[in-house]
Design a protein around this nucleic acid. Sequence first.
DNA 1: AAAATTATTTAGGCATTCCTAATTTTTTGC
DNA 2: GCAAAAAATTAGGAATGCCTAAATAATTTT
Lengths: 226, 226
Amino acid sequence: MNEHLTTSIQDYLKTIYTLTADGGEASTSALASRLGVAPASVTGMLQKLASIEPPLVIYRKHQGATLTRAGERAALEVLRHHRLLETYLVESLGYSWDAVHEEACRLEHVISEDFEQRIAEQLGHPERDPHGSLIPTSTLVMPPSNDVLLSSLRGGESAVVRRMRSEDAITLRRLESLGLVPGAEVTVLVNSQFDGNLTIQVASRQPVAIDPAVSDQVFVETTEGT
Amino acid sequence: MNEHLTTSIQDYLKTIYTLTADGGEASTSALASRLGVAPASVTGMLQKLASIEPPLVIYRKHQGATLTRAGERAALEVLRHHRLLETYLVESLGYSWDAVHEEACRLEHVISEDFEQRIAEQLGHPERDPHGSLIPTSTLVMPPSNDVLLSSLRGGESAVVRRMRSEDAITLRRLESLGLVPGAEVTVLVNSQFDGNLTIQVASRQPVAIDPAVSDQVFVETTEGT
DNA sequence: AAAATTATTTAGGCATTCCTAATTTTTTGC
DNA sequence: GCAAAAAATTAGGAATGCCTAAATAATTTT
């Protein structure tokens, strides 16, 4: 079926997937900004991805793109490569978690299935990457998740940090300096519905005030059952 | 100086280097055949590589190409990546020596200097790759070598197998089945100057007859001093 | 609801790297 | 040394994936 997808196409699919996954819209401008290309280039590529065989996206003018089943599988394959690579770079080559993104972005397009399997095995088939993001399975299924944005918690609620939305090194270092790393326990002391600022306590640190630039980057899982 | 070289250019430079290194000519047709492109494409690329700033090759019509200093440095960088990667794939990921070439050919163009340094360190800064080829140093110097073709030995001479010219899996498996792997000791019992066939003995195996298709793939180092 | 703003698409181009076909140059064999 | 064969080059073109500028569609403001 899919002969071979170019690096560029893989990047488009991956970006459409991640934009859509966190409840967003894969609009022309959102894609253009994430991919660092002009909006006109995105339009052209979406038209192409919708018209090839098999179609990889569903595209209607002025309404952005959705992945088809084939497109989603291709996206999950790239995402699996990316997240396994990030994990591998941290675990086996000693990279810091804020430095792996760029390297993984280049490697993800060129590793073989054999390479993927070998690192997955060596890592013990991890479920999450260093930023806490779920790694699609080798059968290209994205495991279920019920994490929510830290900013959605109300005052008094506690939760465990699960994953970071951003892969940006500066953002990640800021989160780390606040103790906001996967696995950390966080309590929201105050959530100002008004301006979106929170007062949080991470583990047994001093409480700190954070704004949405921080709290909208952190996904947590509340400790109660379903 | 060198902003960024495309994968395609890196492949041309690497191929010119290796063709030239073993005493060959980097002719248009040799390059075309090695790179899997039409001769006309090679001519076009060589003209381009000779006219960019800084020039990466010296090119005169109908005389093939030679690397400039800048071109050689770029070639050694790619070659270092390739050979370190091959070593890493074998040592750290359990690949067999005849399976690493394709993977390294794709990875060599995308790994960072950081990645290069990390695997070099983890491997203990190896001097040779799994096929016995010398790995350029981090300062982009190719270590000296005085290996010669197995086919150049005369009857009665002994030597140690140093490296294989080919990276082709089938060829490598054939050599391995004869015991011709780096480090193996080989004695030439007979070298027929007439048809180029040899009779050799590897370690304490049974003597076997080989033809130039084999003996021209194997470089050895004679055990006497300089 | 019309005007202004923003988002998106269309149109036309450019760089890269490959191709085939035709031509020219070099090498080979007699 | 000359004709045939082989090698290399030129010419013209295609696919990718990006760009800018202009046109159109959608959304927001007033």
